[in-house]
Nucleic acid binder design. Sequence first.
DNA 1: GGACAGGTGCGGT
DNA 2: ACCGCACCTGTC
Length: 280
Amino acid sequence: MKIFTFPTEYFNVCDTLECGQVFRYKQLDDNKWCVWSLNHYAELTQGDDVVTVVCDDEEYFRNYFDLSTDYGKIVADICSWDDSHKHLKHATQMGKGIRILRQNPFETTISFIISANNNIKRIQGIVERLCVALGQKTDFGYAFPTAEKMASVDEAFYASIGAGYRASYLASTAKVFANNPNFFDDFTDSASDKPKLLSLLGVGPKVADCILLFGFHYFDVFPVDTWVKKIYHNYYENGLPDNKIAGYLVQTFGQYAGIIQQYLFYFERKYLQTDTNTLK
DNA sequence: GGACAGGTGCGGT
DNA sequence: ACCGCACCTGTC
């Protein structure tokens, strides 16, 4: 096992894992979490000054946690903007410990197909059962299954792990990836890659934006879900129909749209929600 | 019991 | 292109 540390100012373990970008994590203790990614595993301890990471592959997780990106600059830039109602500035300051993970595109695609019209707890259960059933056993649990393995089972299997009506989407999309192992190889930017993602069954505009943001680290996207719709209507309302909200917010926030989506989304859910249940 | 989950595909205009 | 609607399932 490898061990390394990173300063806490722009790395909060809880906020990074629980802001909704990833589903294969678990809280072990008051200040301790673990996370699985592909066939890798890490345990993170939140200290006052540093986050301590114990993992099987240091290089993998330095990249995964996006440790070479300067979030101090991102936060400073956003906070320097003119923001009349100060909502964005507040959300950014509260969420400055969030880092956008660099997740595997295939794992991200499958996970977010499952996430559609679903809740976190149930999503985690479905993904967990998927890995246990089809993933390779590792020293730390189970790897995320390969496309080939996922293509070898049928729709009934995905229904059996609780995927509901998403079962047919998973069976279909798994086959696409199994038949096209280089599906992601020519991905270059959000504009040209999004149509390729939308061609997958179960991937609509919101899920596609999540894949582009969490799987490819493109920040010029703004996944619009029920929470973002509420945020838009509360703070940015200008009469647009739902399917124009994402484009408008990308235009408004430019190169920081994706990370701002996370700051606003997480702030709204964590601090402003009335239903305290939905986060856990 | 109805509404809600980090929506999408489908059929009808 | 643009609606409106059904949809698995668990939880409140």
